[in-house]
Nucleic acid binder design. Structure first.
Lengths: 251, 251
DNA sequence: AAGTGGTCTAGACCACGGT
DNA sequence: CCGTGGTCTAGACCACTTG
């Protein structure tokens, strides 16, 4: 048990700086947590207690607590209470952008070459990646993306024909496969694995690199509802591509 | 201007499924965007228009629109209006966790070896990474992290002594440097670069790998307010470590 | 001046969990 | 049963942008 409620004195932590009330409440609570006054798993005063202590309406308190919950500082359970979350193990984010957009954003020229675009039958591994049965038809495309005529990404993609039946009849010089898929199927979720690998001989040729040049490999499955739409293996020469990311706390 | 307002018929898109009203409003709006009925940069009906059309209170409409804005579907401008955001270039997230936590979570045993822990003077590059002047003192640590006695991370870290003066006097067999720094300085922001590299001879020895094994290198700077607290270079053998990530839309 | 989003309030009803 | 969070309402005032 020992589920101690923080005897708050939160009112003392409320800043005077002009700002919306719900913002000041949020900041005050973050300060309690940051300074170790409120510890992980400790109970936070209830909404009605905060209403009384701070003299603020419940909707305002609720907004502050709701936002802090979605930001990972608090955990709430209906009928039970609000608690300080476990130490936000610094899960930081890396963003993976659309390659064409990313190149355009740098003011460079994007182009691509289609090496392969065809239907085939799924072998065991491919079937597993798409969540279909082996022997079923699937579409496969293999493209090289260039930034100012220098190859930066080799995109090897499998597509579930049931979810994108017209996949083979698109012009991928105009629109990347991912952009097309995004348009025809509502992509609801995705999973990535990023790793460092050495390229094989064929990959070296396509990317115009030496066999000892390490590459980033991003493998991605993308879902539409509960079906896998596509499985992609994106290979980037380590010397020409890096993933950037950032995170912020206490916003 | 041709800033067309969506003639909405949003009411037709509201689902019947029992759910909170603000959720149903959100889903209905997402559907308009997803199906191309509302296009990027097009103006969305104002709050008061939606109140009239849907027969829902303004606070509820406001919550729906506010959440959609923070999720990146809409853009709002006070005094102007609410607009459909540019195509959410599928920025997906990869999480970078604390190595010790990650290993513990897999039910494995984490240990680490301290190769170096000392004060020195910053050379030009080091000074730049910490945002200090060259010649100033800095702390450096070099650790190998093991998962069940197999090396998985080589952590080479520079620390700003002004922000963590007791850095050298900690027991890093008990607590990782990052965990310690997180405790003594409020870490407010960070930046990462992930790339694929080949290890040098010394790194091979420390990680017990062959020189042709590609590695993931994560370089991270971490801020406390506007000061850089620490710069870390985390090197992972490609065969023993992968970064996982996921994203979800239309929550 | 009119319309927009941004915030805030004082009430209300509900579903849930623990007693 | 009571206290908790979850939602919703009908009003209100404000700051901002535009004509």
């Amino acid at each position: 048990m020992a589920e101690q409620t923080a005897i708050s004195q939160l009112s003392a932590a409320i800043s005077e700086r002009p700002a919306p009330i719900y913002q000041r409440v949020k900041q005050a609570i973050i300060r309690q947590i940051r300074e170790g006054i409120w510890l992980a798993n400790q109970r936070v005063p209830s909404e009605s207690e905060l209403v009384k202590e701070l003299g603020v309406s419940r909707m305002t308190i609720n907004r502050a607590l709701r936002e802090l919950t979605s930001e990972g500082f608090l955990v709430r359970m209906q009928g039970v209470g609000t608690f300080v979350a476990e130490v936000k193990g610094y899960t930081a984010m890396l963003e993976v952008h659309n390659i064409a957009d990313e190149i355009a954003q740098r003011g460079h020229h994007h182009s691509c070459k289609i090496l392969l675009l065809k239907e085939s039958r799924a072998d065991l591994e491919q079937a597993a990646m798409l969540g279909i049965s082996s022997g079923q038809p699937l579409y496969r495309s293999l493209l090289v993306h260039y930034e100012n005529d220098l190859p930066v990404q080799l995109e090897d993609r499998l597509v579930n024909p049931q979810l994108a039946p017209d996949y083979l009849n698109q012009d991928y010089l105009q629109q990347t496969p991912y952009t097309y898929l995004m348009r025809v199927a509502p992509l609801t979720a995705g999973e990535h694995i990023v790793e460092a690998v050495l390229p094989d001989a064929q990959q070296c040729r396509h990317l115009a690199i030496y066999p000892e040049e390490p590459c980033l490999l991003i493998r991605r499955q993308t879902w539409s509802d509960s079906n896998i739409v596509t499985y992609a293996r994106l290979l980037y020469p380590g010397s020409r591509y890096k993933l950037l990311g950032h995170f912020k706390n206490y916003g």
